[in-house]
Amino acid sequence: MPRQCVVEPHDMAQVLDPGSIVVADWHRSADSKEFFSRILHKKKRRNFGLLEALVMPPNVSVDTVHYKIFISGKSGVGKTALAARLAGLNIPNMHYETTGIETTVVYWPVKLRESGRVLFFRLQLWDCGENALRRFDHLLPSCKEQVDAILFLFSFTDRASFDGLSNQIARGSEPCDRVVKLVVGTKFDLFMHTDVTEREVTRFQEVWGLPVFRMGGDVSNVSNLGEVAPLLNCLAEHLWHQDCVATRSTILPVSTQSEAANVVHV
C-alpha cells in the first residue's frame, strides 16, 4: 500500500542561496574555458548523441553525474521552448503541441565551491506535451520514474497556468520521493502582456519556499550561456545537495557517491 502523501508548502526542502555550493557565474572565469569549450562547437552548443560522451584531455579527469529532470506545466507555457533554450538548440517560435515525451540532454560544467572540484552535470530534460499526457495514461508515470528534479512551469502571460501551480506541484510530489523542485516563469520578456504580478510571485515564493526563475527573451541568441547559467547552476546545486544529504555527508569522495548520482568516469 503506497504511503498517502500530503504536500504542505513548508515540507519543502531547504532553498540554497545561489553560490553556496557551486561557484556562481563560473562560465565567466578564465579557468572555466577549457571545460565550457567541451560543450561548444562553432560558438554554438554542441549536440551530443546518446553514444557520445564528453571527452577531456588525458591529463584532466572530470566526473560526469547523470540526472533526470521532468519539465511540467500547462500546454503552451513553453516547456519545449525551455528545454531547447537550456540545451542551446533552436527555439521553436510556433506552438506545436508535443505529442509524447521528448528528452533533451544538457551538459553543464560546475565548480564546487569548497573543494574546487569540477564536475560535468549531464541533465536529461524530460518534456511531455500536456495534452498527450492527459490522453495517454502511461506517459506521466514514465516521466516520474526515477526522477531527480521537477521544473514546474507557469507563463507570465497565462494567469491560469500560475493559478494551477499548486495542483501541478501536488501531482509531481506523489509519492513523496526525494525530488528537487524549482519553479520557472516563462515568457517574462512579454512583460507588456503580463498576467501575473511581481507581488504574487514573491508571495508564492514565500509560501512554498521554492526557488522561482524568470525566463524569456531573445530566442535567436542560442549560445548565450549567461541566460541559462543561473537556472542550471541552481539545479546543479540542489541536485548535488540532495545527494549529499542522502548520503549524510557534505564532501564526498566520488567512489561512495556512485549509488546516489550515477557517477560515470569519462
Partner: peptide
C-alpha cells in the same frame, strides 16, 4: 520531425 528538434530520445504514442 522528432529528430529535427535535436532531442535525445522520444516516446510518442
Amino acid at each position: 520531425s522528432l529528430s529535427l528538434s535535436g532531442s535525445a530520445s522520444c516516446d510518442t504514442p
